[in-house]
Design a protein around this nucleic acid. Sequence first.
DNA 1: TTTTTATTGAAAATTATTTCACAAAATAGC
DNA 2: GCTATTTTGTGAAATAATTTTCAATAAAAA
Lengths: 212, 212
Amino acid sequence: MTEQKIPKATAKRLPIYYRYLNILKDADKTRVSSTELSDAVKVDSATIRRDFSYFGALGKRGYGYDVESLLKFFKKILNQDKLTNAALIGVGNLGNALLNFNFHQNSNVRISAAFDVRPDLANTVQSGVPIYPMAELRKQLEDQQIKIVILTVPSSVAQDVTDEAIAGGVRGILNFTSLRLSVPKDVRVQNVDLTNELQTLIYFLDHYNDED
Amino acid sequence: MTEQKIPKATAKRLPIYYRYLNILKDADKTRVSSTELSDAVKVDSATIRRDFSYFGALGKRGYGYDVESLLKFFKKILNQDKLTNAALIGVGNLGNALLNFNFHQNSNVRISAAFDVRPDLANTVQSGVPIYPMAELRKQLEDQQIKIVILTVPSSVAQDVTDEAIAGGVRGILNFTSLRLSVPKDVRVQNVDLTNELQTLIYFLDHYNDED
DNA sequence: TTTTTATTGAAAATTATTTCACAAAATAGC
DNA sequence: GCTATTTTGTGAAATAATTTTCAATAAAAA
Ligand SMILES: NC(=O)c1ccc[n+]([C@@H]2O[C@H](COP(=O)([O-])OP(=O)(O)OC[C@H]3O[C@@H](n4cnc5c(N)ncnc54)[C@H](O)[C@@H]3O)[C@@H](O)[C@H]2O)c1
Ligand SMILES: NC(=O)c1ccc[n+]([C@@H]2O[C@H](COP(=O)([O-])OP(=O)(O)OC[C@H]3O[C@@H](n4cnc5c(N)ncnc54)[C@H](O)[C@@H]3O)[C@@H](O)[C@H]2O)c1
């Protein structure tokens, strides 16, 4: 499955490139240079060239990169040529905002099922997504072959819910809770910790004056 | 302002440590070892010790770290001993979820003002936070001395809104839009790009089987 | 056609971060 | 008080990521 492993730092930048290439395509641009890309995505141009070079020689010297073919390449690499279904667990404040958001607009991901303990939410539909009771979590994940979960439950129940989701076959978790989840090593957790982000921002403001 | 610069990677972990120390304190634990912390926050214990050591010798050999004094230390470092006001711009889907969320519960940050173009939102109060029309952005930021902005407007207007906020004295931006903002070098942007996070998660699942 | 200019790709150098491994110090048990 | 045990703090090594540099090549201009 793994061709040749690219650096994690590079992998995290791929979606950024991908998005900007889509914008270029929509604007009918046919070519782009690493410097131009650099301006738009705020990544050093040498880093961009280095990133791209892990996948082979994608550009042409003296010319730059062809938008169309680069886009096609990244679409495949990022699995954006097929639809990925995800489940959302915890239809509260944040969960609702995510349900309403159309991820499918600029990525080939959609939330195809949601879950919550609240009895009044069970078996309703929010923004076109059916909400199931927690009792059905495992079954639905299995039936729908869902491998990715967005976790927006209270931190206090996050580990339990996670264990259940993994039992249902989940392989990746986008974790919005403040808990650092314990998972088997073949399950990947991506933490999005908004309180942390704010605190980090404050720390940087106080301790790193301008430079970087 | 900058004592001695600690690695950025370390800085990003400080809020994680801080949160867990609060949990320990609430549970009346008086001591903690780097291994125990490691289990909870999923950071290698050697990394934790190294991180702490940038601030001097905070622990005691054969004993570990004193929860209370470590907590007090990090509270100061992270500026959590004083209240930080932030503004939120764009009271839509996501903006509303953030407004409702009580950041103040586990961090000394609160959203003290919100802004939106929608005339029906102007001069109302949501979750205790006054919403102002955009025309007042600059004045309110200046009057309230707000240095931090949470940006949840559509990407298409993100740069314009940013420019205006910076003119109002803002120094840090938590950017939820998909646009990579252009800012003067003394302004810091922390990007939270949820579509990216999902795509990165998918990439890792497809290309990095278990290991790391 | 020749020259100039633009731009990549890759090697090398640099910088940043993590991990190993262990002496030093403190505690805990007896 | 002595010994075994625990656990820190940190040099040194390993690993990861970024940046510099420049030869090679393509395109554009002369
Ligand atoms: N809202 C924010 O802006 C924000 C910001 C930072 C962090 N977070 C984190 O995101 C998570 C969700 O936040 P929120 O504000 O949406 O909270 P919320 O309380 O509004 O929503 C949580 C939802 O989870 C459901 N739930 C509770 N227990 C459950 C269970 N066992 N199984 C399934 N569903 C269950 C609740 O019924 C509720 O609908 C929390 O962990 C919070 O710390 C939220
Ligand atoms: N909602 C999500 O889950 C989600 C997920 C990923 C990214 N995002 C990003 O977050 C941002 C907000 O998303 P959303 O779903 O809340 O959108 P939204 O459309 O629900 O909210 C945007 C708000 O901004 C206001 N607005 C528009 N122009 C403005 C201006 N010039 N000045 C001030 N306010 C203005 C609108 O009135 C609206 O209330 C977008 O950039 C979106 O791409 C959202």
